[in-house]
Design a protein around this nucleic acid. Structure first.
Lengths: 227, 227
DNA sequence: AACGTAACGGACGCTCCCGTCCGTTTGGCT
DNA sequence: AGCCAAACGGACGGGAGCGTCCGTTACGTT
């Protein structure tokens, strides 16, 4: 059953009467999203919904009215940073030097993930298929693949590199989120620098390096759950 | 009140009568530890105690009698792998080529962590000070520092390296534990290979590389908790 | 100013997990 | 064989988190 239908019938054929939301509702919605960014960014996805509610100075029911489930809230919360990620890829592709673009892509994504603990989780774990992350993730990965191809052509990106290596490093980067808050950003930056060096080709000898072990197929990971 | 004192007084001065444990008790204890290794290794530290109990075919009470708390069980469960970690450091120090030792150390630690999801968590998060991880961790880190110093003297380990970089990479490696089980070991190996390359010095120019951003001080991280 | 309803929030039910209690079983010693 | 305590395990209490119900508040429209 769909609750109790607040408005009787809405005058014959009115497709939907959005009836602009009330001012306090808008206000609360905005404050909830701010709080969610702060709380999930600080404590990770495990933070309780009530923590967000308290931080936004609303009751739990209000929170759940605006966002029917936790995942719905998370999706909205990180939409902006998701766009920033796409933007980073777009900028990297636009860079006239593909290797510079590649490097700055790694730096920017790491920075984005480092600034919000929850975003790294949400971005990587890609849980149940909620949040349409998965969808545009594939699209984005295709763009990254193109970028990598170009960077390899310049000889600056090592030949053995595959896109799964980027995912590998982003998953690994997620592990840094458990570092004490003070060290997080610094750790992220140093990690990014090391990663870039590892991905770079050695100047002189393009092939003489010890070969890497085979790359795993990563793409989507599922959250810990069992029958 | 200490329950109801099963044995009246134990004949004057008997310091302790260990009275060898019963056979079924030994048996259960062993099965519990096996189950714990399997369950925590597969599902991580978050796995419920009852899951371990079910897997060991004992009741929850039996489990808690043998190991009064979850952390106690975890400490015992991973004691062996902890020893293996120390062994890896010892072997690395014993290697006549410090750089080879350093490389194999990274490979072995990564392998150890990759084979047991729970161990990586237990090893890195180092929660509340339970499990005496913290104690010998410091001792081990000192040994690693010595190893690194020697490896740097040979010119194979880059000059900018500090021990915190190893911790950084181990924390990062922990992020790989969320990969699908099938890909985990492969991912770990490839990651280790990349890390080794990143830590290596470039043959010709020992100094001309772009400098790394400053290293964060990591050492101990605390689990997510706030006042 | 007065009214109808969107919006609010405290209190509740539900599930999951840790750790404990107590009546029952069983190993091992005589 | 018989005894007794060591060991077992089902059932319980307590706490935390997600999502919902319903009486109350206050926005905005007339």
């Amino acid at each position: 059953m769909t609750s109790h239908v607040p408005h009787p019938v809405r005058t014959a054929r009115t497709p939907r009467a959005p009836r602009a939301p009330r001012s306090d509702a808008c206000d609360n919605r905005a404050r909830i999203l701010d709080a969610a960014r702060a709380v999930f960014g600080e404590q990770g996805l495990g933070a309780p919904m009530r923590e967000v509610a308290r931080h936004a100075e609303v009751g739990p029911a209000t929170l759940y009215r605006h966002f029917p489930t936790k995942q719905a809230l998370l999706a909205e919360t990180f939409a902006e940073q998701r766009r920033a990620c796409h933007g980073a890829v777009r900028d990297a592709l636009a860079d006239e030097d593909p290797w510079d673009g590649f490097r700055s892509l790694i730096e920017r994504i790491c920075e984005l993930h480092a600034h919000s603990r929850g975003f790294a989780d949400a971005f990587m774990t890609a849980f149940p298929e909620a949040m349409d992350f998965a969808a545009d993730r594939e699209r984005t990965l295709l763009a990254v693949r193109e970028l990598a191809r170009r960077a390899q052509e310049t000889g600056r990106l090592r030949p053995g590199f595959v896109v799964d290596d980027l995912i590998l490093m982003l998953m690994a980067h997620r592990g840094l989120q458990d570092a004490p808050r003070a060290a997080r950003v610094q750790a992220s930056r140093r990690f990014a620098a090391y990663v870039i060096e590892a991905f770079g080709a050695t100047e002189g000898e393009a092939e003489a390096r010890t070969p890497l072990p085979p790359a795993p197929r990563l793409r989507l990971s599922q959250p810990p759950s069992s029958p």
